[in-house]
């Protein structure tokens, strides 16, 4: 199955194999027709309404502001409803360096997001520690504390790259299975089990 997006040719996407693999994995069990079309409807809603959490620690956050401005205008895709409260946001763009003191905060923000929740690691620092690789206080990639869906390199990534990454995220949402079948949330649960925090029972 080709996961297509409006006015973007399929060949222009990178990482098509990954999405195809995901689709295959999900479809292995087969789905019945009604559940399948319900899923389609739900995924249409989810993938077209991706609300970010206003969360920025450094340079990448400013590029995220530029993304909202007139030139790049993320409102075209319906992403401009940036919520300050994590309860109401759909994904968290970890824009900037996460340091050890911030790690518990980032994790808590992630825990506060309502399901279904997604994470984009935006910028070199969030992907791997970036230029601060040798630092004593930087977390080498936000993937160590929260499960990441899309990695976006760049220092900082250009707004175009950010658009691309959120479109990739929305493509990922498009092939999810809400009713039955394999769900990405299982992987997420596994991650959270291996990175527990005390005092919080779900």
């Amino acid at each position: 199955m080709e996961v297509t997006t409006k006015s973007m040719p399929y060949e222009d996407w990178k990482d098509n194999e990954y999405i195809e693999g995901l689709v295959k994995e999900l479809n292995d069990n087969g789905a019945n027709v009604i559940v399948g079309s319900l899923d389609k409807l739900i995924n249409w809603g989810r993938s077209n309404s991706v609300w970010p959490l206003t969360f920025a620690t450094s340079c990448c956050g400013i590029e995220f502001v530029s993304l909202g401005a007139a030139r790049y205008d993320m409102a075209r895709f319906g992403w401009e409803v940036a919520r300050s409260s994590p309860r109401q946001a759909d994904f968290m763009m970890v824009a900037g360096t996460i340091v050890k003191r911030m790690a518990p905060v980032a994790r808590r923000l992630y825990d506060q997001l309502a399901e279904p929740k997604y994470v984009i690691a935006c910028g070199a620092c969030a992907v791997s520690g970036g230029p601060f690789r040798k630092s004593y206080h930087v977390v080498m990639g936000v993937g160590k504390i929260i499960p990441v869906d899309v990695y976006l390199p760049g220092c900082p990534p250009r707004p175009e790259a950010m658009i691309y990454s959120i479109m990739q995220l929305s493509r990922k949402m498009k092939v999810e299975r809400f009713f039955g079948g394999v769900n990405r949330q299982e992987k997420q649960q596994e991650f959270l089990k291996s990175h527990p925090i005390e005092g919080i029972d779900d």
């Binding site: 620690t57 450094s58 900037g96 340091v99 003191r101 905060v105 630092s135 004593y136 930087v138």
Partner: peptide, 14 residues
């Protein structure tokens, strides 16, 4: 402060 303390001064020494 310190929620984005990246230790630039220490890295620079290396």
């Amino acid at each position: 402060c310190g929620y984005i303390h990246r230790g630039v001064e220490k890295i620079a020494e290396q």
